[in-house]
């Protein structure tokens, strides 16, 4: 670290940093904590999955039940993420671009699913669509299954991932203001052109970030999905639920094999997120370094 500083910088920093031994012990304690709480659990997933060798690992992943769980997980995310993407953009546009009564309250409501326990999130759909629920008798009469079937799983996933994209976009669009969009409209662009050519390029990093976080949660949700799924093997099991079933049946290698796929998904999510953040920071820096526009004398 000190190698990257020239002597004058070092002198300037002397009053605002700690002695070397304090620095190194703080770094040491922080890294030890991170090692035990983050690195070890991650490493354990892969080690447990490969405990009986690669063959057992592949075999566990080729089970038809594992495949149907993977398939259902992808279908669920494929429905839930685009829905919440459209909602996120609409909500951010309405909340960030305009002033209206009840805006703060609306923003709180958008956040609400974050603070509701996943189990409660699952329960509300059972109360709506379950056999004893509001629409239960009607659904039964028309032979439509929502709870303990795929639609319930999708609904619960939509609920728990509801705020992810809106939450990313609202502060971003608020910070950017309306000037550019107003200029586009005044110059004759349609609303759709304004969004596509002016707003979207400005929010693209936040959008990507929101989408990958939303997707990670959608594929990994456990509590809410567990309540509405009914745990029918090969039909209504998502990957996390399949992990639970295998684990409870003491099929440790198989459970961790499926879990390792989810851990890989988490790692890919973190990698994309980091790249997005670095690129975004670089763009911000490049913009900041542009020469200021001066009125010609």
């Amino acid at each position: 670290m000190s190698t990257t500083m020239n002597p004058s910088q070092r002198r300037a920093q002397a009053g605002t940093t700690e002695p070397a031994w304090v620095r190194y012990s703080l770094i040491g304690v922080a890294l030890t904590f991170m090692f035990f709480f983050l690195v070890l659990p991650l490493a354990a997933v892969f080690t447990e999955a490969l405990r009986k060798g690669l063959d057992a690992y592949w075999q566990a992943l080729q089970e038809p039940d594992a495949w149907s769980a993977i398939y259902l997980t992808f279908i669920t995310a494929l429905i839930a993420v685009p829905l919440n993407l459209v909602f996120g953009i609409a909500a951010a546009w309405a909340i960030a671009k305009y002033e209206f009564t009840g805006k703060a309250f609306l923003t709180t409501l958008v956040d609400l699913p974050f603070s509701v326990s996943p189990v409660v999130a699952g329960l509300i759909y059972v109360l709506m669509f379950g056999a004893q629920g509001w629409f239960g008798p009607w659904l039964q009469a028309h032979d439509i299954k929502i709870v303990f079937a795929v639609p319930g799983i999708v609904l619960a996933t939509v609920f728990v991932t509801f705020p992810f994209i809106a939450r990313e976009l609202i502060p971003l669009m608020q910070a950017q203001g309306n000037d550019e969009e107003q200029a586009a409209i005044v110059l004759g662009a349609t609303g759709w052109q304004t969004f596509w050519y002016v707003t979207l390029p400005n929010i693209k990093w936040g959008l990507i970030y929101g989408v990958i976080l939303c997707n990670a949660r959608a594929m990994g949700e456990f509590g809410a999905v567990s309540v509405v799924s009914g745990h029918i093997r090969g039909q209504t099991n998502t990957m996390p639920l399949h992990v639970e079933i295998l684990y409870n049946e003491y099929q440790s290698v198989a459970a961790f094999a499926v879990a390792s796929l989810l851990a890989l998904l988490a790692l890919v999510t973190l990698a994309i997120k980091s790249v997005v953040e670095w690129r975004h920071a670089r763009e911000l820096k490049a913009t900041a370094e542009l020469p200021q526009e001066m009125p010609s004398a």
């Binding site: 354990a44 996390p240 879990a259 851990a263 973190l270």
Partner: peptide, 21 residues
């Protein structure tokens, strides 16, 4: 980047791996 792991790692995976540890 790793700080966000608990956000990205499905809770069930975290549960079984902490238990295994």
């Amino acid at each position: 980047a790793l700080v966000d792991l608990p956000f990205a790692l499905p809770t069930a995976v975290a549960g079984i791996s902490l238990t295994a540890l």
